[in-house]
């Protein structure tokens, strides 16, 4: 078990394109960090750089306090689970699990016991003789995890390991991953493009955009206290509503060059406090999601989404006023996107 530290890491391709821009990050012993961002934000490059599969242009990477910049991947005591599992297609589950130990010339009897122990732990013992093409998605996933576990890593890297699974299996594997993390107590870095997965898995979340770290914090803080407009818009589903100060009307604070945001699940049908703010608009669409309704209203051309309890009185094309507390209003600088603290 070891900590992972990135200090001023840059990765420039071809002398022009900066893929990673001054990444500073610390993952503590046994911590599960999730890295999230839209595709092309550099999260896979970040992971591959930690693994040693990509060279960084400048900066330092430390694993367990040891600088690993110049070490080969196999010398870094890390393991990686790839998006498409990357199992060896011509080897059985047993051979896939044993390959790393064999490559490092571990004694045959030791390989046998360790592979069997890992297989039992992951529920693969009945499948050891099968080939990857004969496995289900979840079984392949577990094999890939087992192969990584057998590397005895100090840091465990996971590159969108669940994205190739269907939805029910994904949440099951997510729970298994969390249990595994708890029992192994290993430092893990989990990369995903799915913000809900990042929030549910990570003890801390790193939001990455255009090769820059936007925010590193606990899931609660990332959601409740986004540092800038990008984090606010990227995290949470449906995404945050953004309103100009004009739309907010008279109740708006007199701030120049500011854009406001409020989350769909914070919009209410009734006023709760005396100083609650409101917006109104024509109901464009009502979508029943069972226990909750999703409503879109249009106000001066701006579209707002609200998540409200089912209400039979709501009619399409009618005017609706939606209320929200002052504490639920976020303000961002219009040009820089930085969060602006509002006196509430």
């Amino acid at each position: 078990m070891a900590s992972l530290e990135l200090s001023h890491v840059y990765k420039v391709i071809g002398g022009r394109q900066t893929v990673l821009h001054d990444i500073n990050l610390i993952a503590h012993h046994g911590e599960l960090i999730s890295v999230v961002g839209p595709s092309g934000c550099g999260k896979s490059t970040l992971l591959r750089s930690i693994a040693g599969l990509e060279e960084i242009t400048s900066g330092d990477i430390f694993i367990g306090g040891r600088r690993v910049n110049d070490l080969q991947p196999q010398q870094r005591r890390i393991a990686m689970v790839f998006q498409n599992h990357a199992l060896y297609p011509h080897m059985t589950v047993y051979q896939n699990l044993a390959f790393g130990l064999r490559a490092r010339r571990v004694a045959r009897s030791v390989v046998e016991t360790r592979v069997r122990r890992t297989a039992v732990r992951l529920g693969l013992e009945a499948l050891l003789g099968r080939y990857p093409r004969e496995l289900s998605g979840g079984q392949r996933q577990r094999t890939a995890l087992g192969r990584a576990m057998l590397r005895d890593p100090e840091v465990f890297l996971l590159d969108e390991p669940l994205s190739s699974l269907d939805v029910p299996l994904r949440s099951e594997m997510r729970r298994e991953l969390m249990a595994l993390h708890k029992s192994l107590g290993m430092t893990m870095v989990y990369v995903t493009h799915d913000q809900s997965e990042a929030l549910s898995l990570g003890e801390r979340v790193v939001v990455l955009s255009a090769g820059k770290v936007q925010q590193v914090d606990t899931p609660q803080e990332i959601y409740g206290n986004p540092l800038n407009r990008f984090v606010a818009a990227f995290v949470g589903w449906p995404p945050m509503n953004f309103l100009s100060s004009e739309i907010l009307g008279t109740s708006a604070m007199d701030l120049q060059n500011v854009e406001y945001g409020v989350r769909p699940e914070r919009l209410m049908l009734q006023q709760h406090a005396a100083d609650d703010l409101s917006v109104s608009g024509r109901i464009e669409c009502i979508e029943s999601l069972g226990g909750v309704w999703q409503i879109e209203i249009i106000h001066n051309g701006a579209r707002l989404i609200a998540r409200v309890p089912p209400d039979a009185a709501l009619r399409q094309d009618e005017e609706l006023r939606l209320w929200f507390g002052r504490a639920d209003l976020y303000a961002f600088h219009k040009t820089t996107g930085a969060r602006v603290k509002v006196q509430r």
Partner: peptide
């Protein structure tokens, strides 16, 4: 897929081991 070769590198296989076994 290049990931299979990356996996072999992570598994600690050298160039020749990767070539002959993977």
């Amino acid at each position: 897929p290049a990931e299979i070769l990356d996996a072999a590198r992570m598994d600690g296989a050298g160039e020749w081991q990767t070539f002959f076994y993977v």
